[in-house]
Every structure is written in C-alpha cells, then in structure tokens.
Nucleic acid binder design. Structure first.
Lengths: 249, 249
DNA sequence: ACCACTAAATGAATGCCGTTCATTTATTCA
DNA sequence: TGAATAAATGAACGGCATTCATTTAGTGGT
C-alpha cells in the first residue's frame, strides 16, 4: 500500500545525468533536442524530485523551473507528464497520504486507532500546509493513496459499530479538525501575544498568560501549545463521535 | 465594534475619479504625477476595493494591478499604504472578522453562544478560504478586530465557568475545526465519488453511497454534506469542551 | 520494410504578477 | 522660508507558469 504510482521505469528519479568532456572536470552534458532513447522523466521521478526540493527549499522553492533543473531537463519537458503545477502538488499529496499511519485500525480499539491515525495525519501535513487548500477540494478519484486511506478508516469505523450513514460525515469532521490543526503547528509561538493591545483586551490577555506552559490532557510535562489544543479537541471529538457507535468494536 | 479601521478621510473609497473633456463622453482623467492635494488612497478605501474585487472576480482577480485600476491609481501608489500584498489580505481578514457574530456571548447559554459563533465564523470564511493560510499564522497584534473577537469569546468562556488556563486551547481547537470546515463548504459535491476506483474500495464506497442525503443532527430536511459534518463535529466539541466547565454559566 | 503517428525532449517566447525606484508635486513642521 | 516628509506617476525588473514550433525516437498498421 506504499507504492501505487502509475508509471514504472528504470528509476530515472532524481539522477541528473552528468558526463565528462575530454580532460575536463564533471559537467552537465548538453542533451540535444528531440526524444531521447530512454525516457528521462516519469511521474515517480517528478514526485521524488518535488519532495526533495520541498524539503530543501520549502514550498516557495518548488517552482517548475527549479524542478526541471533538479531533474536536468528543460521546464517545458515537465508538461509532457503533468498538465499543470497543480498536478505536481497532487502527486506529492498522494505520496504523503501513504505515510499516514492507519495500522491501528483492525488491531487496536476504535478510540486508540482514531487517535493514532489523527496524530499521524496532522504531523505529516503540518510540514506541508501549502497542500491543504489543494487536498480539501480534491476529488478522491485523482488520489489513489488517499482513497486507500479512506477505505481503511471506513472499515475501521464500520467494524467498531459505527452506523454506515454517518461514517463519511465523521471522517470529514475529523479531517477538518486535523487540517485546521496542522496550520497551528507552524504558527509562531507568540501568535497570541496581545502586545500593546493587552490593556484593551483584559480577559483574553489573562487567558493567554495563564495558558502558558499548560500540560496536555494526557498529563505530559509541558506540551507545545498546538499539541495541547489538538489533544483537547481530538479527545472531545473521539468521545462525542464514539457515542454514535452501536456496540463494542 | 464594527468600524475600527485606523485612517479616516472624506470617503475616498472606490470612487474612481472621472472627468469630462470638452464636448466628449465621460472618460478617466489622467492624473498628473506628484502628490495630489487630497489623498486618493487610504486603508479603508483599499479594503473596500479589495472586497469588491474579491466578490466580483474572486481571489484570482485580486491582483495589485486590478486593485490599483479599481481605485484609479498606479499600482505603485498602493505601496505608500501597504508594504506588500499580504497587508491587503490582512486588512480584508480583519474586516471580515468584524462580521462574525459574537452577540450571543453574554445573552445566551454557553452552548448556544458557541454554536452561533462557530456557524457564523465558518460561514464568513467559507467564502474566503484563501485567507485561511494567512490568518492561521497571523499574530493577533496585527488584527485589532480579530483580537476583539477573541476578547468577547474569552469573556464568554470565563463567565460560563470555563477554567482560565484552558480557554486559549479550547478556542484554538474550535478555530482549527472551523477553518478546516470552511474548506469543505467550497469542495465539489461529488468530491468523494470513488468513480472507477469503487470496486477496489468497497467499504468507503458503501459509506459514501449510504451517507447521501442524510439529515443534519438537528433533524432538518436534507442538509448539504458539509453542513452535516460541521454540525456533527461541532456538537461533539461543544459537549466535550463543555464538560470542562465548573458550574453553570 | 515502409510510413504515419505518437511520445518526449529542447529552446524561444509570452503574459502576468508583485515589487522597486527615480521623479514630481504638495503638505507639514521647525 | 526652507527642509523633511507624504503621496502620486511611470518605467523597469526578475520570476513565474505556461505555450508553441521544432527535433528526434519509438510504435503500430499494411
């Protein structure tokens, strides 16, 4: 379930083709125009390169030009494999979804499985918040790994006695919370500091001051604020949604 | 609490200055270079124009050039009032926050107040999802209206017996859910249609099919799917978070 | 074995976008 | 009165995604 990418070839991947000119140091060889004997690009390679670029330069560094350069290709060559940059983001998104841990469904109790899945899901996408606007409106048909995740989660819910008609709504509610929470992780620590506006907003200021360094609901030492809020909301959702179940799972 | 925008002037707003040249139809008069006697731009006017542009052309249509044109000004003139496009988005965001209904805090029971606030908050930003990545990491100091909203909500929580140290986390959890849910509203209706992948994902497919046309938890006729999921998650959060309160509010 | 078609690359060009800068003119303040 | 500041124009810049004509290599049909 970790490798469903459509195309297959002899790992063209990121390997920029280098060559040697007589008596000189390594330099990038000029590829002449026209179709090469062995294809240079495929979707798997583009995905890998995009992920590398993102991890090195962030999403601002993910440009079609930079992607092409990393793949040692002209930018226009990419458009033989993707229709637009959005497609590159889709490839990345679907790969990331395959990293989400759904293993607890089927082995652990429903509450634990949801908890494991939700934390994993949030952690993966906290590093990739620019994808969230894309995912949120993405038809599942275009993302096989994402669909696979939903399948596993749906079965877990059903087996736990969750009424079938409510499964999609429950997943959507959890996902909404997860995506929203992923943004929090990236927010600056002092985002709620009222600063010069403190005097005009006494109640909120007091709440901010007294929330500093609160432990998470599971009682750990001193979780990051985003983790505390995520735990709080997630446990509420698990309890509330769990009450819809029929019998034990 | 609806108008705190900093600058004030004789409503320069959107009014593109038109003029007449002898014997001709109305046409835009060329403004000569140099500082005009009366300022053409201010933050309130820029905000109004941005909102009009967004409602007419969407966020893709909100470009500095288009904004300048609507205000009958050269694009570079905008940079005397905002440092970057991001500042324009901030102005819009803070204005929109002032539209969120917090009136129930102080008059209605805590549960009802949270419910009213959350629905209103979601509905406002469902039309403005491109702002969410901006808001989520925006220090509150830069957004006075947003801060005012937090103040009202914080007071409502405190008065309802909510422990002060947990107020910020609870608000963050609710907000995360709200922002995530705002995306759902804009998603295409058939986003979960498995299409050709239905056979490989039977549990999820069945869940999607059987969830079609489910009523919302309050029992209305046939809510939109996004509304059903929002209601489900919100009620779970209200119940779960509400259990943290000390006494009645 | 030929030939038309398609696939996959280059490289030049396009148009838009946010932003910067030199310049001009008006206002404000010491 | 004169220097500093504020607010406009207009030209320019670099970066971006994308398109198109062109070249070359593989493929499928007769």
């Amino acid at each position: 379930m970790l490798e469903t990418t459509e195309e297959r070839a002899g790992m063209p991947a990121v390997s920029a083709e280098k060559g040697r000119t007589a008596g000189n140091a390594v330099e990038t060889r000029r590829r002449r125009a026209g179709r090469p004997s062995a294809a240079v690009l495929d979707k798997a390679g583009i995905t890998t390169a995009a992920l590398e670029l993102i991890s090195r330069k962030g999403y601002d560094g993910l440009t079609m030009a930079a992607l092409a350069k990393l793949l040692d290709v002209a930018p226009s060559a990419l458009y033989n494999h993707v229709a637009a940059k959005r497609d590159v983001l889709l490839l990345v998104e679907d790969h990331l979804t395959s990293l989400v841990d759904v293993s607890a469904f089927g082995s652990a109790p429903w509450e634990d499985a949801v908890r494991t899945w939700a934390w994993s899901y949030r952690n993966v996408f906290a590093e990739h918040t620019p994808l969230i606007p894309v995912i949120a409106v993405l038809p599942v048909t275009d993302a096989p790994q994402t669909l696979a995740m939903y399948e596993t989660v749906s079965k877990g819910f059903l087996d736990a006695g969750f009424p079938e008609e409510r499964i999609v709504s429950a997943i959507v509610a959890l996902e909404s919370f997860i995506f929203g929470s992923a943004y929090d992780v990236t927010a600056p620590g002092d985002i709620f500091e009222p600063g010069s506006m403190a005097d005009a907003n006494p109640y909120f200021t007091a709440a901010v001051r007294s929330s500093a360094g609160q432990p998470g609901s599971t009682g750990e030492e001193r979780g990051k604020p985003a983790d505390t809020a995520f735990s709080l909301g997630l446990e509420a959702l698990i309890t509330g949604l769990g009450s819809l179940r029929n019998q034990a799972g």
